[in-house]
Design a binder for these strands. Structure first.
Lengths: 200, 200
DNA sequence: GTCTATATTCCGATAGAC
DNA sequence: GTCTATCGGAATATAGAC
């Protein structure tokens, strides 16, 4: 079974899903073995196929969950009708940093699996219109910036998400894990401040 | 020689390395098959082992190259003695955007392989002192910022590198490939401008 | 539903002819 | 040095007893 978590009241199916989330996210699809998942969940290898039919099908379920988790943290904020542009920026930076502090390897997992099989998973994140036609983008356009609104979106995501993508390298530069987390906590207020400077 | 080029005068060993660079970088170590590499290089599978002994050894050579390419573009600039802080910022943004426009999947490849096997590859990028004690960091500290200099470094790298890490998703939002490249070209001048704003 | 044992496929590596 | 053919192990998936 998993690390801190208990498997006390989980159904067998849930135990397998829980283990699959962990193993796939840590190692990626290709390097993950169904035996790892079976062992991690404390059940037998045959049961994995009994419940999920194949490694591929199990992975698709996990991937769908992870994509929704990663993009579900931002899309609703982008489309809020009543909040200001500044409030949205604060909301995105804050909720993303909270989410990624808890799940640091979420972005690199999702992005690298999409890169590995774009034909299969790029459609999952078919957020084209939900982003480009979002309230957030409309509000950015209203500001009559001298640059494309995409630059602002890229900067917001880059400053927020990149430190977690680069964490395996950056945390070595910075020193202790706790210091990394402290810096990220500071960024919840700093990033909105910096982005607002770019709006003038 | 890269994509457009032909393999005309390449030695067998170079043809295999060339194919290995391509296949490993595109699919990652675990998903790459030595048969893919052999086919891509137009030679036989046995020759791969004849020249490189194993998949693992071949991968180590490729990984070393890629890490040096990725970090070699920034470390020397960080340690220039004679250039100003502003010039270093322009140099890093400019040379990184040029490099990554040509090799967009370099960062996600390197970062995800380091994450997969930190015990093996984290040492490769043992740039701790070369970064934290760099001229660039000293120059940042001299500015007496109200925030940690690491924030500035993270912002510079985040705004520069993240768009390429997120390219599989971002390019779908933006539209055509050419528009993505045009935005990146603009960022060579925009990023230094934004970073300089953060120094005040 | 759950297990053990086994079938099947795939892949890295090698033997041996040329 | 280069090839064809094959070995041997590893990993996914299934059969069948309980």
């Amino acid at each position: 079974m998993a690390k801190g978590k208990k498997d006390l009241d989980l159904s067998t199916e849930e135990k397998i899903m829980e283990a699959a989330r962990k193993v796939f996210t840590e190692k990626g699809y290709a390097a993950a073995r169904t035996r790892d998942i079976a062992e991690e969940s404390g059940i037998n290898l045959a049961l994995l196929n009994y419940y999920f039919r194949s490694k591929e099908k199990l992975f698709e379920l996990v991937m769908l969950e992870r994509v929704n988790k990663l993009f579900g943290a931002i899309i609703p904020i982008l489309n809020e009708e009543s909040s200001s542009l500044e409030e949205k920026i604060e909301g995105i930076a804050g909720s993303y940093i909270d989410l990624l502090t808890e799940h640091p390897d979420l972005p690199i997992f999702v992005l690298s699996e999409i890169r590995n099989r774009p034909e299969k998973f790029a459609a999952l994140v078919n957020a084209r219109d939900r982003v480009t036609k979002s309230v957030f983008m409309k509000q950015l356009i209203e500001r009559k910036l001298s640059v494309s609104p995409f630059h602002i979106l890229i900067n917001l995501l880059g400053m927020t998400v990149f430190p977690f993508v680069g964490k395996p390298v950056l945390s070595k530069l910075i020193g202790k894990e706790a210091e990394f987390d402290e810096l990220m906590k500071q960024r919840k207020e700093l990033i909105p401040m910096w982005i607002k400077m770019m709006l003038n």
